[in-house]
Amino acid sequence: MVAAAGLVAVERRDEGGCPQLDEAAGERIELVQPNVGIVLGDHTSSYDGDYSGTLYITTRQLIWLSDRDLHRGYAVDFLSLAMHAISRDTGAYPLPCIYTQIERGDNDEYEIGEDEDEESEESEITNSGDLSKVSEMRLVPADSNALESIFQVLCACAALNPDPEGEQEGEGEWFFNADEVLAGGLTNINILSQQETAEGLVQDSRFEDAEEELEDG
């Protein structure tokens, strides 16, 4: 999953009730926090005190799975997680929580990477309404002492997921030059070469989309 998919539904989990990870790509769980509630969108007044979910933070995404409904869950990849913060002022929101902003799926910048292999995911979005339009999400742990550790793990994992280099094109590419790659050492070279592969795919699909849009219009 190279593209920033925004918020997606998670309707399947493994036999142990845990999220299915892309272990082949090295995805692993960094934090599990039980008894976490979730509030999507800006419906801060409709919070129903539902703590019955479990938050999983992996090296690639943030996943919340309901404890009550085994087919209910949500995930946001780190490429889509624009901002996260600790919110403690109960005047603005009744409970201390992790506040997040999600890049919408309809953002032009993030549409370029959608590829046709992810049909199952697209149908899930359709089934669960307008998840791709959700731009705010609150995670409310029953134990508010956990906020700081959740925040720190989110920071660390977000840093593991830089954008594919192609998205910087036209505004930032000039400071990703060859000298910088060399100066950055072997680790960075590995990361960059992976990104270049991804960039190629992204650009291909973007051009296809552009042509289709022109023909349709």
Binding site: D42, A82, A85, S87, R88, A92, Y99, E136, A158
Partner: peptide, 14 residues
């Protein structure tokens, strides 16, 4: 609703 936020992490790309 952002008033309650006192510290935050912002993704570089946004």
């Amino acid at each position: 609703h952002m008033l309650s936020v006192k510290n935050c992490f912002i993704r570089g790309s946004v």
